[in-house]
């Protein structure tokens, strides 16, 4: 429901962004409420960074409207000062060290927590005085992650924050994110294609593919909405009859299909009687299947168009 008195943290209305030869965002409409952790999921080049750029006034949409706290973010210091977006490919002044970057951040983010930043520097073992351009990819990511977390901005975007971070550092990031979010609720938008790692942290999932939103739902509502059925091919086929099939795999007489829908106990019993195995589908698998299904659909339409020509 659109309530004019309390604008959503983020709202996109029919936003399209075209580059010379490509459509990065294709008529995207989206409404995100505040104080939640969102997962902005999708393949590389799906439009995640473009979406975040438009929302932070760093990039421009070709048409449509982007609203943050009910206002246009572009050149709007009032709104921008409540947002933090460190790009995956963020550039820093030539002579900047991590320490100087944090010093700057403390000037602009009013909720900046230096003690928290210091703690994170320690945990990520980040060299403070080394020039940023001499840092490794993982250390560079750590600089962005630390600014994002310690800024405590009302809306914080993390753009593929884990690039180059090892498993330990990634776990530190996820743990601190959950803890700090619990203590200081705010809106977090985590763009990622490592879905398994972040799935349990997300309250809401937005899946983008080729500039279109193909899934926008609570993570809990998605969890368990698909199941993989494996066993004898004909049994699988009869069990899957009348259901939306997201994926098919087969090996000789064996088949493994991913079908949509929550299983009732009766259906589980039915599967057991048919000698079929049911396995849960992870959020990552579901996202992969949905994306591939959407791609197939696009390809189908494309080939239909070819035929029409």
């Amino acid at each position: 429901m659109n309530n004019p008195t309390t604008p959503a943290a983020i709202e996109l209305r029919q936003v399209t962004k075209t580059y010379r030869d490509a459509t990065a965002l294709d008529n995207v409409s989206l409404r995100l409420e505040g104080n939640r952790i969102y997962g902005l999921l999708g393949r590389n080049g799906a439009g995640k960074t473009t979406l975040m750029s438009v929302l932070t006034g760093q990039g421009f949409q070709t048409s449509g409207e982007a609203l943050v706290f009910g206002q246009h973010p572009y050149e709007n210091d009032g709104v921008l000062s409540r947002i933090c977006f460190i790009r995956e490919s963020q550039r820093y002044p030539e002579d900047f060290s991590a320490q100087r970057a944090f010093k700057s951040a403390s000037l602009f983010f009013k909720h900046w927590d230096q003690a928290f930043a210091d703690q994170l520097v320690e945990e990520f073992q980040l060299p403070l005085k080394r020039r940023i351009k001499k840092l490794s990819r993982g250390q560079l990511s750590a600089v962005g992650v630390i600014i994002g977390l310690a800024s405590r901005a009302e809306i914080t975007f993390f753009d593929e924050p884990y690039l180059g971070l090892d498993a330990v550092a990634r776990q530190i990031f996820y743990d601190r994110l959950v803890e700090d979010f619990a203590a200081h609720p705010r809106t977090i938008i985590l763009s990622s294609h490592l879905i398994d790692e972040v799935a349990n942290l997300l309250e809401h999932v937005v899946l983008i593919d080729r500039g279109r939103i193909i899934l926008d739902d609570d993570a809990e509502a998605i969890r368990g909405t698909a199941v993989t059925v494996a066993g004898n091919a004909s049994a699988v086929q009869s069990f899957a009859a009348g259901r939306e099939v997201l994926h098919r795999e087969s090996l000789g007489s064996l088949a493994s299909w991913t079908v949509e829908g929550r299983m009732t106990n009766a259906e589980r019993a039915e599967a057991a009687e048919l000698g079929l195995e049911l396995a849960p589908v992870s959020l990552q698998q579901l996202v992969v299947r949905k994306t591939m299904a959407a791609t197939d659909a696009v390809l189908d339409t494309d080939s239909e168009l070819e035929v029409l020509k």
Partner: peptide, 8 residues
């Protein structure tokens, strides 16, 4: 924090 899940 313990189960590494969303607080909500």
């Amino acid at each position: 924090a313990f189960y590494r899940i969303n607080p909500a």
